[in-house]
Design a protein around this nucleic acid. Structure first.
Length: 399
RNA sequence: GGCCCUAUCGUCUAACGGUUAGGACGGGACCUUCUCAAGGUUCAAAUCAGAGUUCGAUUCUCUGUAGGGUCACCA
């Protein structure tokens, strides 16, 4: 990997919606790249669309990013930088790279500011995709501002990136076609061109871009937070959609990701969002937690299980799994019954009678599951009375 | 449709131009009498197609095909 100096990157979300997983993923890659090279990571809200941007969305995005642990070095709001844009627009008007024109033929009275398109070929080197070439003629004289003091996205982004000395623009592939017009504006204002890296998109099972309209809540980071996913698991999962360390290690904490990250190993093809894999990452990340935190998470999850809320249906054959006969299972349950709630006594009996012969029927009677938490944990959660009721029910059924 | 991007198991992906094409998720089978929502073993599963370059192509080139992105006074 190249040794890079003075890296400055930015994440530029528009606060027109809650924190999207695609936004979080892009933020992570920017963060990783900056930290890996000892550079700066800037968060800049692109709130130039005054009608759709809200403070609530801004807060949601900021809070979500903080929750994930993607900490920024600086935060900006483009709505507070109008004076800067105005000076650039005036400069462009003066030197003829922009001009005032009618918004459309249908609306000749309304004036906007258009960019004077030089109609040339634009070629740029993308860190991930290599050489990309566009003919900008088809862009025509696109609009860069509604008025002198009301800039549109492309102008604001280019001015801000220039002013903030952004060295690398790392963003989603859906921005690749925005790049030529931004390069044109850079050239018009005499800005240096940053290095571009267009990340592959995260797509759904149908290989379509994730959208609020089609996917609803699954696109929001909050949804995963509310469902109990760990930020570290989400980060690990996001990182592995489009990147891999080149080794067989898959479980990474954020500092480990920073250490291992190499933008040269970023994939070109889109990645399908696979919730099963996220669940697996989450399970692995829970194992990384201190014992007491793991126990707390387990207790919470167990409490949500259906068999905790309502007594399960029991399969008699399964109570007496394998070598145990039903009679033996029943006998052991009967002998265990008075011992429920007395862990030591029950364990002592289990050791005498054979642990499997005692513990399995109890656990199964309580949960009705082949796989569930151990009987002692279940008794603790269900309470002694409920546990005894379930065991009595199993004894009755075995008669 | 124009422009642009992409293409290895179902999914995430690995593989100096030389590998029985590897790992992970998920799935199947089996083992495991239990403080086990575990663990173990194992099976199935891929280089989009066709040319070219080369002794040799998943890898390089071209064409095709397929999929995606983008074409706003949104970002």
């Amino acid at each position: 990997m190249k040794d890079l100096q003075n890296v400055i990157v930015r994440m530029a979300p528009s606060p027109t919606g809650n924190l999207h997983i695609g936004t979080a993923r892009t933020a992570l890659f920017n963060y990783l790249f900056a930290r890996r090279h000892g550079g700066k990571y800037i968060l800049r809200f692109e709130d130039t669309d005054k009608t759709r941007s809200t403070k609530e969305f801004e807060k949601n995005i900021l809070d979500g990013l903080m929750w994930l642990g993607i900490e920024n070095d600086e935060v900006y709001l483009s709505s507070e930088r109008t004076d800067i844009y105005v000076s650039y627009v005036k400069k462009m008007l003066d030197n003829g790279t922009a001009y005032v024109a009618e918004a459309s033929e249908l609306n000749p009275d309304k004036k906007v500011i258009r960019f004077k398109n030089p109609n040339k070929k634009v070629v740029f080197e993308d860190l991930i995709r290599g050489t990309v070439e566009f003919d900008t003629t088809e862009l025509e004289d696109f609009i860069i501002a509604r008025s002198v003091d009301d800039p549109l996205y492309h102008l604001a982004v280019v001015v801000d990136d220039h002013e903030m000395k952004i060295t690398h623009v790392i963003r989603g592939e859906d921005h690749i076609s925005n790049t030529p017009r931004q390069i044109l504006i850079q050239e018009a204002i005499g800005a240096e061109r940053p290095i571009y890296a267009h990340l592959p998109l995260i797509v759904d099972a149908d290989h379509k871009k994730l959208s609020k309209r089609k996917h609803g809540a699954m696109v929001w980071v909050d949804t995963y937070k509310d469902e109990g996913y760990l930020p570290g698991a989400l980060l690990n999962f996001f990182a592995f959609m489009g990147w891999n360390p080149g080794t067989e290690k898959e479980i990474f904490t954020l500092p480990e990701l920073v250490e291992a990250f190499d933008i040269d190993r970023v994939q070109k093809g889109a990645a399908v969002f696979n919730i099963e894999k996220l669940k697996w990452f989450n399970k692995e990340h829970i194992k990384l937690l201190p014992e007491d935190e793991q126990a707390a998470i387990r207790a919470k999850e167990i409490g949500e299980e259906e068999y905790i809320k309502t007594a399960p249906e029991l399969d008699l054959e399964k109570i007496a799994w394998k070598t145990s006969t039903k009679v033996e299972a029943r006998t052991n349950l009967e002998k265990s019954l008075p011992l429920i709630g007395d862990k030591d006594a029950l364990m002592k009996f289990a050791e005498e009678a054979g642990k499997g012969n005692v513990l399995w029927p109890i656990r199964y009677a309580l949960s009705g599951k082949d796989k569930s938490p151990d009987p002692f944990t279940l008794i603790e959660i269900l309470g002694v009375d409920e546990s005894k009721k379930r065991i009595e029910k199993a004894i009755d059924q075995l008669l």
